[in-house]
Computed example of a mutant assay.
Amino acid sequence: MFAELNELLGASPQRPEPGEFTLLRDSRTDGSFLVHHFLSFYLRAGCKVCFVALLQSFSHYSIVAQKLGVNLTAAKERGQLVFLEGLKSCLDLVFGEEEEQPGQPSPLLFLSESPSDLRALFDFVRVSLSAPGSEAWAGPVLLLDDLSVLLGLGATPVALLDFIHYCRALVCCQLKGNVVVLVHSSEESEDEENELVVNSLCHHSDLILWAEGLATGFCKDVHGQMKIIRRVSLQQAGEQDLVQIYQYKIQDRNVTFFARGLSAAVL
Rank of each mutant, 00 (worst) to 15 (best):
E20S: 02
L129N: 03
T22W: 02
V52C: 02
S148L: 01
R231D: 08
S128Q: 13
F218C: 07
Q14R: 14
I250Y: 05
R253M: 05
A65Q: 11
E187C: 14
V70Y: 13
P13L: 13
H204I: 05
Q56K: 04
E98W: 07
R168D: 08
V255Q: 02
Q80V: 08
V158R: 14
G79K: 14
Q56W: 03
G133L: 09
F21Y: 05
F110K: 02
V183W: 03
V64M: 08
F38G: 00
Q66P: 15
V52E: 00
Q236Y: 12
F58Y: 08
G238R: 04
E190I: 06
K48N: 08
I164C: 01
A136I: 15
V35A: 02
L54A: 00
E193N: 05
W210I: 03
G10M: 15
D92R: 04
R231K: 15
C167Q: 01
K227N: 13
V35P: 00
L109C: 07
L68N: 02
D117E: 04
G31C: 04
L207F: 07
D206S: 04
P157M: 14
Q225M: 09
L175C: 08
F38I: 00
E193F: 04
F33C: 05
L109N: 06
G133T: 09
R126C: 13
E98D: 10
V141M: 04
L196R: 15
C50Q: 05
V125Y: 06
H223G: 06
A211W: 00
N254Y: 04
F95N: 10
E98T: 06
S128R: 05
L196Y: 11
A3C: 08
Y248V: 06
L262F: 14
R260D: 09
L182N: 01
H203P: 10
P105I: 10
A75P: 09
V180A: 01
S128N: 09
D117K: 01
E190P: 06
S57Q: 10
R260Q: 14
G86T: 00
K76A: 13
Q80D: 12
D92C: 08
I228F: 09
S148C: 01
M1H: 03
E193C: 07
T73Q: 12
A259V: 14
S186M: 02
